[in-house]
Nucleic acid binder design. Structure first.
Lengths: 114, 114
DNA sequence: CTTATGACTAACAATTTTGTTTGCTATTGT
DNA sequence: ACAATAGCAAACAAAATTGTTAGTCATAAG
């Protein structure tokens, strides 16, 4: 986990204070996070659908990434009634939705500046 | 370094293929990179100026981050003539300049969605 | 002749991130 | 009875990122 007072942790906090840009990047820069957010936006909004989309991801890894972006308020979980076992839907929050165009810009930036 | 065939490396490549978004994020998601790009844009375009801006960064770390964003074509180095020791200026390339508004959007996104 | 400057680099250690193995829940289909 | 489904979680191992220590070069100032 985190060591609170390692140089690494101190530097991370220094950057968070310096500019919100670093906070934002911290949220979306995990290995699968941006892709998960995009995939949910494209309708792959169930655990097993995401597993299919992200061929090589393992269950614990997907679970962790989902939990982290949930903690950051990018997605929320919603139980689907009358399903067994109880299905869970992932939905983008407003914050999450407003991130989508920025991710698209990033995508186009690379396409136009290879 | 890199292990070419570790699961981690394979997954990274899977994502690069899946969507350019992941390539873009890979370029800017190092600990200091986005902040360095922004600082250069704001005129802190010398090695020693960046060191002052990023209080706690060490020289080897700054050197590495600069080299990486140079390799990605975000910045270029330029010798300043008639200086001893020879000074180096860092300049954003076109690709780098076109990244700035996107970083600003990310910054505003967090400010507006805390 | 020692120290300072500007701009690094290699080698190594600390820390964090990512991935793996194993196990769980409750219900339905065979 | 047994496997299958959907959706996880803890504990651990592997790998990558980040930070540290020590050194380089050429010139100029004290």
């Amino acid at each position: 986990m985190h060591k609170e007072n390692s140089s690494d942790a101190l530097n991370r906090r220094f950057l968070f204070k310096k500019c919100e840009l670093n906070t934002a990047l911290n949220i979306i820069s995990g290995r699968w996070k941006a892709q998960i957010i995009h995939s949910i936006h494209n309708g792959h909004n169930r655990f097993h659908l995401l597993q299919k989309e992200l061929t090589n991801i393992s269950e614990p890894v997907l679970g962790r990434q989902l939990k982290e972006i949930e903690t950051q308020g990018i997605i929320i979980k919603k139980e689907i009634p009358e399903t067994t076992p109880t299905g869970i839907e992932y939905l983008l929050t407003g914050k999450g939705e407003r991130l989508i165009p920025i991710l698209d810009n990033l995508c186009n930036w690379i396409k136009e500046n290879p």
